[in-house]
Design a protein around this nucleic acid. Structure first.
Length: 208
DNA sequence: ATGACGATTTACT
DNA sequence: GTAAATCGTCATA
């Protein structure tokens, strides 16, 4: 019989507002297939919604549209990968209807390819990484999963190297919410509770 | 051409 | 808790 958790999420799943998609992504699987065929995956345990042109914390705030954020205006189910702080990549799931809205993937619980993830993450740390160090942050998970500039604009619905599988949705009663991280510059938008995570999960980036 | 700034992570005090 | 690392991007000139 088919393994329902390994079914892909269909396009319609992503064609919803970011505040709907964000919590719906908890418990789903982000899958990366390396050039050598090795499969890496993680269960999504923390996300943030970015509400587009009206949201001061969003890269598309005020209708800003540049080569960098172009992918964020793409069709629902597109990956928006950006480079920041001169050294880190972060990945978003574009949603809505081409209006520049997306959900940032902030933390995963490693599932497949953990040994490979440890090997990669070890390179950027002085001490030996623990399993909790691997994907507990938006840039950490990209590093561990081998996600970079080349995945910007990739299709997470039909893609071959980076995509989402159904996994198992997390019931609302296990959801925790809070302010988004690192967006203090966004003034009143910084206080909005647009971050969702699995409250009891040790792989989230921060619990606050 | 220049300068300020990150949707972060790491190590160190 | 604080500070350094590090550079692509974009607004300004």
């Amino acid at each position: 019989m088919p393994d329902l958790a390994r079914e892909r999420l269909d396009r319609r799943f992503f064609e919803v507002p970011p505040r709907i998609l964000a919590p719906a992504l908890l418990g789903r699987s982000l899958v990366r297939v390396l050039p050598n065929g090795v499969r890496l995956s993680g269960r999504i345990v923390e996300v943030e919604a970015y509400l587009g042109v009206k949201d001061r914390a969003s890269h598309t705030f005020g209708g800003r549209r540049t080569p960098r954020n172009e992918a964020m205006y793409g069709r629902a189910g597109t990956a928006y990968v950006y480079f920041t702080y001169g050294m880190h990549f972060c990945v978003n799931v574009v949603c809505g209807e081409g209006e520049g809205v997306a959900v940032l993937l902030r933390a995963l619980e490693p599932v497949e390819g953990i040994v490979e993830m440890i090997r990669v993450r070890r390179a950027s740390m002085k001490r030996e990484p623990t399993e909790r160090d691997l994907c507990s942050g938006p840039a950490r998970l990209c590093r561990a999963m081998g996600i970079d500039r080349s995945h910007n604009g990739a299709d997470l619905v039909d893609g071959e190297t980076l995509f989402l599988e159904a996994g198992e949705a997390v019931p609302d009663r296990y959801h925790a919410r809070g302010r988004r991280v690192g967006v203090e510059y966004a003034k009143e938008w910084a206080a909005r509770r647009l971050r969702w995570f699995i409250g009891c999960n040790p792989h989230v980036s921060t619990r606050a």
